[in-house]
């Protein structure tokens, strides 16, 4: 589950792989931020990168595009060595930073023209104009980037990093702080770009976004814990879950406290008026829940584990391993 997929076994030709890295490790001082990370991303796929805050997602993305030098590990990005060919990678990769990193005091059009000139596009003014209409910012081209709302900023940032027609997009939490409608439009755009053959690596905290990826990877404490399609990841967790709901809707917090830490129960998470309770050992979980079944007003029903259940379980286990 945690080892890298064997390329030969999967029968993928080398040039079908956009990102292929092995054993990436990055330390900041004594702190290891990314530990022995290996991953492969197919060309043309949307690869979701999930994990809690500070798990090393941004650091990994920065190593992929040459912004950080790995302390250990090797690999290629679009066929170029991430250690020695950063210049070639930079020409072919669009990187959308977590924090808005275009010039706040330049207008929409000026920002795009700047990017177009740096990448040496033949007609920067025209390229910028086309991109403005593509991202739906027509009428706002003279507005300063700093004055745009969060959703518009995010569109502009996406426009700027797709302007030089990259082969790979690295998107670092692109939809943080963006409203649901703008998020949905953003994802439609990502799918359209991927359909054109662009590879997209996107980090996110949102489960619904993870489910829109072709493949996902979960990283915690700098280690890649699991990867695959959403269904594969859920299945590989071997998690059995139940929903525990109280008819009067009260006392759930107390019940959660009681459930937590019992042998067989690996995960308890409140969801609205019910609790998700999960465990990897079905019989142990069943036994743990047995004493609760007789309580009046409490309904315990089997449920299909969600991606979030799996991730919360993974996070709990990763923390246990590291402490």
């Amino acid at each position: 589950m945690t080892e890298a997929p064997d390329l030969a076994k999967d029968g993928i030709a080398k040039n079908d792989i956009a990102i292929d890295v092995h054993g990436l490790t990055k330390k900041f001082g004594a702190r290891t931020v990314v530990r022995d990370l290996s991953m492969q991303v197919r060309r043309g796929s949307i690869y979701g990168f999930l994990g809690p805050n500070g798990s090393g997602k941004t650091t990994t993305i920065r190593m992929l595009c040459g912004l950080l030098t790995p302390d250990a590990g090797e690999g290629t990005c679009l066929g170029f060595n991430i250690r020695t060919q950063a210049d070639k990678i930079k020409r072919r990769v669009g990187y959308m930073t977590q924090r808005f990193s275009l010039y706040q005091d330049l207008s929409v059009r000026e920002n795009l023209e700047f990017v177009a000139r740096i990448y040496g596009l033949p007609d920067p003014a025209n390229a910028a104009r086309d991109m403005i209409s593509r991202i739906g910012l027509s009428g706002r081209e003279a507005q300063l980037a700093g004055e745009l709302s969060g959703g518009w900023k995010q569109r502009l940032a996406l426009g700027a990093c797709t302007l030089p027609s990259p082969q790979l997009l690295l998107l670092d939490e692109p939809t943080a702080g963006v409203d649901p409608k703008a998020r949905r439009e953003f994802w439609n755009e990502i799918h359209a770009l991927a359909a054109d053959g662009l590879t997209v690596l996107v980090s996110t905290h949102y489960m619904d976004e993870a489910e829109r990826c072709h493949e996902i990877a979960y990283i915690a404490y700098g280690e890649l814990l699991v990867h695959g399609t959403v269904d594969e990841v859920i299945a590989s967790a071997h998690l059995v879950t139940y929903t525990v709901s109280a008819s009067n809707g009260e006392g759930l917090a107390k019940i959660a406290d009681e459930l937590n830490g019992r042998p067989g129960i690996d995960m308890v998470a409140p969801f609205g008026s019910s609790l998700h309770v999960g465990g990897r050992d079905a019989s142990a979980l069943e036994a743990a829940l047995q004493s609760f079944r007789d309580r009046p007003g409490l309904a315990i029903e089997p449920a299909k584990p969600t991606l979030e259940d799996v991730f919360i379980d993974l996070m709990t286990r990763a923390r246990d391993n590291f402490q």
């Binding site: 912004l67 990187y95 930073t97 924090r99 275009l102 706040q104 990017v115 740096i118 990448y119």
Partner: peptide, 13 residues
């Protein structure tokens, strides 16, 4: 400080 350096460094300049 404005965070624009990260983008700039990721570009071929």
């Amino acid at each position: 400080e404005r965070g624009t350096m990260e983008s700039l460094l990721a570009m071929p300049i």
